[in-house]
């Protein structure tokens, strides 16, 4: 029974993890860079959600569309100002864009610390537990897991069935080829970062429902997202779904059997072991 319970929890956690990773994945696919500020956007969105709910007493779910639109704009501006200037730098671009997003993550986290403080907070909403056939199912976990998976599904539909989404997917698969098809790759870079940030924002709103967050969790979330993306294959959207579910399951199991201390370092251990064992098996990363 415990195993089944852990599996259900793991799958629901995995649903949120998928969303956590897809934003990072999108940015990597199109721009070829890893956004080290990804986790800090998630964290700040989560902390803002906590602040909003405790001050207005509204349901956190109302925030999802607002955060999406706001982060879309913020992401577009950040990309234009900070990352687009590096796009033409050739071989040094990877290193420099890592530096820029590394710096950006500190700016966001430290500013958030000054606003929200450093204590861990979590939302008291949606704390009911349903009992289904002997399993205890947490309402928040269901909301976050199902919404996370649903929004990832929307992303999938957008990427595969709409002209703008297809253009983005094409750019992600082969930027040079996309240019020859008349796609404005520069615009695609902007769109990918805007949507990547918006997805990170929503992930934060959902995450605060199920996990306590504080400003310093940002790094862990960046790594967590990166591990999911890397396990699934950088730039591979379907792979990230499986990897997100896998990581949800692993963490729920490790957390139960080995304790919270180990659970925290699971993403790091996975990152190092998996990448050492299969350095070439990671698609584009192994070039």
């Amino acid at each position: 029974m415990i195993v089944l319970q852990l599996v259900v929890n793991g799958v629901l956690l995995g649903g949120t993890y998928i969303l956590l990773a897809q934003g990072l994945n999108l940015v990597f696919g199109v721009m070829g860079i890893v956004n080290l500020a990804h986790g800090s956007i998630i964290t700040v969105a989560g902390l803002f959600t906590y602040w909003f709910v405790t001050h207005t007493d509204q349901s956190p779910l109302w925030l999802i569309p607002c955060v999406f639109v706001a982060m879309l704009a913020v992401g577009a501006v950040l990309q234009r100002l900070l990352l687009e200037p590096l796009a033409k730098l050739g071989t040094r671009r990877e290193l420099l864009s890592l530096m820029v997003t590394f710096g950006l993550s500190y700016v966001i986290v430290e500013t958030a610390l000054n606003f929200f403080g450093s204590q861990y907070v979590s939302l008291p909403n949606l704390q009911e537990t349903w009992s289904v056939g002997g399993l205890a199912i947490n309402e928040a976990l269901v909301a976050a897991g199902v919404l996370g998976a649903l929004i990832s599904g929307c992303l999938h539909v957008w990427l595969h069935y709409t002209p703008s989404g297809k253009a983005l997917l094409a750019t992600s698969q082969n930027a040079t080829g996309a240019v020859t098809c008349g796609i404005d790759v520069r615009r695609m870079r902007g769109i990918s970062f805007a949507i990547g940030s918006a997805l990170a924002g929503i992930a934060g709103v959902l995450l605060i429902l199920i996990l306590p967050l504080s400003a310093p969790t940002a790094d862990t979330l960046t790594i967590l997202s990166f591990v999911i993306v890397a396990l699934g294959g950088l730039g591979d959207y379907k792979g990230a779904v499986y990897a997100g579910l896998l990581l949800g399951l692993v963490q729920s199991g490790v957390g139960y059997y080995l304790g919270g201390d180990v659970e925290v370092v699971v993403p790091y251990l996975l990152l190092i072991t998996f990448m050492v064992l299969r350095p070439q098996g990671l698609g584009q990363a192994a070039r």
């Binding site: 900070l82 530096m99 820029v100 590394f102 710096g103 950006l104 993550s105 500190y106 700016v107 986290v109 430290e110 500013t111 000054n114």
Partner: peptide, 9 residues
């Protein structure tokens, strides 16, 4: 630290 971040960028 936030200003160090700004400086890096």
């Amino acid at each position: 630290l936030a200003l160090y971040g700004v400086l890096v960028i």
